[in-house]
Amino acid sequence: MPLLKNGSIISDDWITIGLEDPRPESGDIVVPYARLLKEWESLTDHDGRLGVIFTNIDRVEALTLFLPRLALIVLPFPSFTDGRAYSLARQIREIGYTRELRAAGNVLPDQVQFMLQVGFDSFEIGDRFSADIWLKASRQMSLAYQRGLFRPLGQQEVWSERHREAEPWLEQPHAG
């Protein structure tokens, strides 16, 4: 399935393996969270990058131990109205995860901007909508009221725009 990432459409080079599927010798693999728990010891030695498909009912704190080894976390959307993964994404970023965070399942173009703001940076986009619509929808709004959001695509926060003088890191460096 194609991915939307960093404002362009790319192919997905990760190999997704199920709970019972044989594990390839090497290559970048994504495993279900249950398998990560079960085979953690051997997975750490896997020749290739490691990703996990997290679920909506597990707690993010449980991921802390695995974070240094993970290069991809996939959060599924069972339906596009199920918003749990928005909170999970933000929590995962709050505990310090910085690598790829992917939205999978039922995702609509009009939701991508919110997803970017809570910390997702890649999206399984299927073939329901054209690339054009995905790209356009991901930059519908250029402003957000909430602070501390991810601000891709030049999006601005009302707070910091409004109180520029109060944000020292936004000040121009002094000459000399």
Binding site: G83, Y86, F114, Q117, V118, Y145, Q146
Partner: peptide
């Protein structure tokens, strides 16, 4: 303002 289009709490 805080709740307007809050990305985490819209679904």
């Amino acid at each position: 303002q805080w709740s307007s289009l809050h990305p985490e709490f819209s679904y």
